[in-house]
Amino acid sequence: MTAVRCIDLCKTYRQGEEDIKALDHVSIDIESGDIVCLSAPSGGGKTTLLNSIGGLDRPDSGEIYIAGQRIDTLSKSGLAELRLNHIGFVFQAYNLIPVLTASENIEFVMQVQGRSRGERRDKSEEILAEVGLAGMGDRRPAEMSGGQQQRVAVARAIVSRPTLVLADEPTANLDSKTSDELMELFIRLNETHGSTFVIATHDQRVMGYARRLVKMLDGRIVDDIDQQAA
């Protein structure tokens, strides 16, 4: 089953006097349960593609489907609904809500979804243990290391069982050991929950964990490698 389908996406940014093609006729299908790395040098278009798939940015033209539903024509509110119920995000700078504890950050999405307090609590404790942070639920982000914060961010992204998890440079602020631990966590969660992971990165170590590596340059897909087959 296809989790993500992008057809002929184009997106141009204006930077000063210059037009920059962030996406230049990009088409890609991503299967459910896959782990795909989008790799490109800075300005190559990987983040724009990731944001477009996540409904955070709109392409100038082209079509995007998530689990068969076209999303590029949805309203702001419709996109918010889609992100809430079907997509989990992991950001480079962790981006936890500083006034909430680790548990509350994890419960946040479920709370907005309207799930019961008991269910939220149970799932939060379960996922905290799964990401190796059992007993740290009461800590606020400022009281945690970068690696721990990123684990909380991953837990937040995965806890409501989204169809798709999008991670933008998730290891950029982490040391190599923590990066490896995080990627191993991604693999484990992918295997356990079956969520599809799309990771934008230019970190070679991260690319090594992906089953599929999509290379981009100047807004175009220049290579698409099935690393399992390789």
Binding site: R83, I87, A93
Partner: peptide, 16 residues
Amino acid sequence: IREIGVMLALGVKPAA
């Protein structure tokens, strides 16, 4: 601003 952006990205509606 960033925090508000994160909440919007996570699916919180602008009205909220």
